Simulated assay, not measured.
Amino acid sequence: MADELRTAARLAFDALTGVVGIVQDMHRAIARNGLGPVGDLQSAMAAPIYGMVRVGLAAGSVVAETALRNSAQVLPDKVTGVLNGAIGDRLASHYPALATPLRLHVSEERPPTGHLVVFVHGLVHTEQHWWQDGPDYGQRLADDVGATPLYVRYNSGQRVTTNGARLAVLLDEVVAGWPVPVRDLSLVGYSMGGLVARRAVHEAIEARLRWLDVLRNVICLGSPHLGSPVERGAAVAALVLNGFSASAPLARLVAGRSAGIKDMARGVPCTAAPQARQRFLAATVAADPTSVGGRILGDLLVSTASATDRSQAADRDVVGGLTHPALLHHPEVYARLVTWLSSSADTASG
């Protein structure tokens, strides 16, 4: 982690250099369309200025990295989550010090139990979002149903299939090495995290991993199983911008969103484990979830149709009067978690 700030500085200067290139391309396109040959001459005269800006940014990057060489500070957790969600695929290949490896956070304050609940965060989040802005479902479940909460952190800008495959392997290692026999395992995924959890099950089925034997629940909170209209809108915007020479450089900027974000357009194919229950919980800003507005608006990011996906074998529920972020910290959501996890634990122990 010692070089995290240095890498962040290099990323910032590289991003600024990219913005300069976009501005120059837009300047060139606008000048050419509006002034013809005169515009081309104007662009040629401006080129050295853009070049000097790039040289200045390159020098600034070197100075910043040198100044931060001995810094032990790290980026704030929320910044790390946003960076990984927005461009995590490129971080992994070009700025690995900033790319989040998939790993598990385990609370050491409580003795381990054989009832594990694994929480998988959403896009541009980290595991700390489960407890940063409200009551932590995991610690409350430890008190109320005797579960041990485990929290996954992953690079949400990478493909859902990639993170699902890695999570499947990690869960196999956790169950095999847990200090007490695991009798009950449940996955709770928020938003993208639900897709990652379901993909982990899919990968485990393909590889015949042993942790499937103790899997009881796959709970998805506001997960876009059928995709998100927000991401589909971004894809359309990129196409529209690319249709005009003056705005085509901006299309590159929109198209640069991460592979993980692009996966949100249509969802990800997953196979369900027959011995486990899928539980899909959706939210809608409308007080009445059955109203037309409730079905259309959803939680403003994910529609109720996508979050409940009628093509899947699952228990479904919709909570009214909630936005997408409220699914992380709400008493009605927690009440459903307690009901689902208590019933499965009773079944396993019986």
Rank of each mutant, 00 (worst) to 15 (best):
V117W: 02
Y95C: 07
A97K: 05
H115N: 10
L91F: 09
V74Y: 02
V79K: 06
V124R: 10
K78I: 11
H94T: 07
F119N: 01
V124C: 14
P112Q: 05
V106E: 09
S93V: 12
T113G: 05
D89S: 08
T80E: 13
H105E: 10
L83A: 13
L102R: 02
S71Q: 14
L98C: 08
S107R: 14
V120C: 04
L116K: 03
V117I: 15
P76I: 09
T113R: 04
I87R: 11
G114H: 04
A92K: 12
T100Y: 03
A72H: 14
V120F: 04
P96S: 05
V124G: 00
Q73E: 15
P112V: 13
H94I: 01
S71G: 08
T113P: 01
P76V: 05
D89A: 14
L75H: 06
V124P: 00
L116N: 02
A97V: 03
P101T: 05
G114V: 05
P96C: 00
L91A: 11
S71H: 13
P101A: 08
P111T: 12
L83R: 04
L98I: 05
P111Y: 01
V106T: 13
R90S: 14
H115I: 01
Y95K: 02
G85V: 03
H115F: 07
L102K: 03
R90K: 15
I87Y: 02
V79S: 11
V124M: 14
V74L: 14
L83W: 00
P112S: 05
P76L: 07
V74A: 15
G81E: 08
L91M: 10
V117H: 02
P101Y: 00
P76C: 06
R90C: 05
L83N: 06
D89R: 12
L91Q: 12
V124H: 06
G85M: 11
F119V: 01
V106A: 11
L91H: 06
S71K: 13
V120R: 05
E108P: 00
Q73C: 12
K78H: 15
A99S: 15
E108A: 10
G85N: 08
V120M: 02
I87K: 03
S93Q: 11
D89Y: 09
N70G: 10
G122M: 08
S93E: 13
H94A: 15
H121Q: 10
V74M: 13
V118R: 02
R90T: 14
N84A: 14
P101F: 01
E109D: 13
L98H: 08
P112N: 06
L102S: 04
N70S: 15
G114I: 04
Y95D: 11
Q73S: 15
S71N: 12
V82T: 13
V117F: 00
N70F: 14
N70E: 15
D89I: 07
L104H: 03
G122V: 05
L123V: 13
V79F: 01
D89C: 07
G88E: 04
G114D: 08
P111K: 09
V106F: 01
I87S: 10
Y95E: 07
P111A: 14
G85F: 10
L123M: 15
E108F: 01
V79W: 04
T113K: 08
N70V: 12
Y95W: 12
H121N: 09
P96L: 08
L116A: 06
R103D: 09
S107H: 09
G85W: 02
E109N: 11
H115L: 00
V74R: 15
L116D: 00
I87D: 02
H121Y: 06
R103P: 00
R110T: 12
